[in-house]
Simulated scan of single mutants.
Amino acid sequence: MKVEVVMAWPRRHEAVVVELPEHATLAQAVEKAGLSGGDEVTGYAIFGINAEATTPLRDGDRVELLRALQIDPKDARRRRASKPKR
């Protein structure tokens, strides 16, 4: 089966498609992808739904490596709203 493993940063991302045996887990996909997320990775998701390293995968899944938020989304929205409009 083929699975896509994705890691995103502001203004760039990396995506790797890996081939795995049936009944492979999320951890196996991340290891095979070899993305350099390191200490930045705080969790995992499959198509935006939280998942654990032991979660079994299906053909065509997109595994997302999650990072900690840099700023509270509510604060970011307030900052954008307070800027004068052009």
Results as ranks from 00 to 15, higher is better:
Leu69Gly: 07
Val16Tyr: 01
Ala45Ile: 05
Arg86Leu: 15
Gly60Leu: 09
Val18Phe: 03
Ala53Met: 06
Pro21Gly: 06
Pro56Ile: 09
Arg77Val: 08
Pro73Tyr: 07
Asp72Lys: 03
Val30Leu: 06
Ile71Gly: 05
Arg77Asn: 05
Glu52Tyr: 00
Ala76Gly: 09
Val17Lys: 08
Tyr44Glu: 01
Ser36Asn: 12
Asp61Ala: 07
Glu31Trp: 08
Ala53Arg: 08
Val18Thr: 01
Glu14Asp: 10
Glu4Arg: 14
Arg58Leu: 11
Val63Ser: 03
Pro56Gln: 03
Arg12Lys: 14
Ala27Lys: 07
Arg79Leu: 15
Glu40Met: 14
Ala76Cys: 06
Lys32Cys: 02
Val30Arg: 06
Thr25Phe: 04
Ala15Gln: 14
Pro21Leu: 09
Glu40Thr: 07
Arg67Ala: 11
Lys32Asp: 00
Val17Asn: 01
Phe47Gly: 08
His13Gly: 15
Asp59His: 13
Gly48Ile: 11
Arg62Ile: 12
Leu20Cys: 00
Ala68Glu: 10
Gly38Gln: 06
Ala51Val: 02
Val16Asp: 00
Pro73Ala: 03
Met7Gly: 09
Ile46Tyr: 01
Arg78Gly: 05
Glu19His: 03
Val3Arg: 00
Arg67Thr: 12
Glu22Thr: 12
Gln28Met: 08
Trp9Asn: 12
Glu64His: 07
Val41Thr: 05
Leu57Thr: 04
Val6Met: 06
Ala33Asp: 03
Asp72Tyr: 07
Lys2Gly: 07
Pro84Thr: 08
Asp59Phe: 07
Ala53Cys: 00
Gln70Tyr: 04
His23Lys: 13
Ser36Val: 11
Arg78His: 11
Gly37Asn: 02
Gly43Ser: 01
Tyr44Gly: 02
Arg79His: 12
Pro73Phe: 12
Phe47Arg: 12
Glu40Ala: 15
Glu19Thr: 08
Leu69Cys: 10
Ala29Glu: 01
Arg11Lys: 15
Pro84Asp: 10
Lys85Asp: 10
Gln70Thr: 14
Ala8Met: 08
Pro21Glu: 12
Thr25Val: 07
Val6Thr: 07
Glu14Trp: 11
Val3Ala: 02
Val30Thr: 02
Arg62Lys: 13
Gln70Trp: 04
Gly38Leu: 06
Ala15Val: 15
Thr42Ile: 13
Met1Ile: 06
